[in-house]
């Protein structure tokens, strides 16, 4: 009784205060994200083909088109800030509902040679993921290394949003939010439509930007480790795995020729060693005749596609997926010779 009054009661009281304040702050500061929609989908539906990867895949692959062309249900789980570790645990979460037949991993080399950032978007997948065994493992793999404030108080990375509190709360009270709708993400130049981010940028000159490029000397060992875990997992559960790299603007390729060539060589060899089909759509062998590679059409220098390009790319990707990986490799090896 004495213990209860002196230790447990005050302890519980303090935890209660923290939980309440934390919940309120999370609700008020953290804006609605389409990651929430994706999590809801993987909890409630089963998918044949899962796309994992980065913002390039998010902007360039239309799951609706691929589903139509391949006849297999698809979901695009590519996200900006999704490192191989995040992709691995996303897949683990998907597999808690059902194991897909195929995983397509979109590889952006800069995620393999840079450290994970400490910003909201790098933790969003963890935050939106509902609790389960996969999330517990994800916690141990990712959150333990972080600042304890980031792990305990998700709103920590969103303090800058206090100016938008009214909008955030209004959004979360709306019917659209409750039904996991994507109305909130429709903007004039961009929208979360058909399960991916469709850019509506008009053709224009784009300024050159600072971009992260592949640098073998600064390998992020965690990225390699978790990709290999993903590969083992797919092998263990008989999941077909294909790795792709989306096309980037011609101008960007030419400006950073050396780094792109190094990247192409490195990852081609890496995937070949592991027997993983790798379709790098920047290589001449994979060139698409109907795809406009000019910087004017892309939505930025880094290479996020606009809606039309995404359509063409998705059609081509579907064709290649239908052919089957070995056939595709053969065709391109033949072209090579």
């Amino acid at each position: 009784m004495r213990n209860f009054k002196k230790i447990i009661l005050p302890g519980l009281c303090m935890i209660l205060i923290l939980v309440v304040v934390n919940t309120v702050m999370n609700y008020a500061l953290i804006p609605y994200s389409y990651v929430r929609i994706m999590m809801h989908q993987i909890e409630t539906e089963e998918y044949d083909t899962v796309f994992l990867g980065t913002s390039h895949g998010l902007n360039g692959i239309s799951p609706k088109i691929v589903e139509r062309e391949t006849g297999r249900s698809c979901i695009n789980l590519c996200l900006g800030g999704e490192y191989p570790r995040d992709a691995y645990y996303l897949l683990r979460k998907v597999c808690e509902k059902s194991i897909p037949k195929r995983v397509v991993y979109e590889l952006d080399a800069c995620y393999w040679c840079t450290k994970e950032g400490q910003r909201g978007d790098f933790n969003r997948i963890y935050y939106e993921m509902p609790w389960s065994k996969a999330k517990l493992e994800y916690f141990a793999a990712k959150m333990l290394e972080l600042d304890f404030r980031a792990a305990l108080f998700p709103w920590f990375y969103y303090r800058g949003q206090f100016k938008e509190i009214k909008e955030t709360i209004a959004c979360k009270q709306s019917q659209d939010y409750k039904e996991y709708g994507s109305q909130a993400f429709q903007k004039p130049h961009q929208g979360f439509v058909d399960g991916f981010i469709k850019n509506n940028t008009a053709p224009s000159d784009k300024p050159e930007e600072e971009i992260e490029l592949w640098n073998e000397k600064q390998k992020n060992l965690d990225s390699f480790r978790y990709f290999e875990k993903l590969v083992s997992f797919c092998r263990k559960h008989n999941v077909e795995l294909v790795v792709i790299t989306t096309p980037v603007p011609q101008e960007t390729l030419e400006k950073h020729q050396k780094e792109y060539q190094q990247m192409n060589a490195y990852f081609s060899a890496y995937m070949r060693e592991r027997g993983i089909p790798y379709w790098n759509y920047n290589l001449p062998e994979y060139k698409m005749d109907d795809f406009d590679y000019s910087l004017r059409i892309f939505s930025d220098y880094e290479g996020h596609m606009n809606g039309d390009q995404a359509e063409i790319f998705s059609l081509r990707l579907s064709k290649d997926l239908n052919r089957g990986s070995y056939e595709v490799e053969e065709i391109h090896n033949r072209d090579d010779n």
Binding site: K6, P10, C13, Q118, R149, F156
Partner: peptide
């Protein structure tokens, strides 16, 4: 003890509220 609880909780909450990401 209630004052102490609030002191602890308050200090703890100031860390994410006013601190910088590491």
């Amino acid at each position: 003890w209630l004052v102490k609880c609030m002191l602890f909780a308050g200090l703890f909450l100031l860390l994410p509220a006013l601190g910088q990401p590491s």
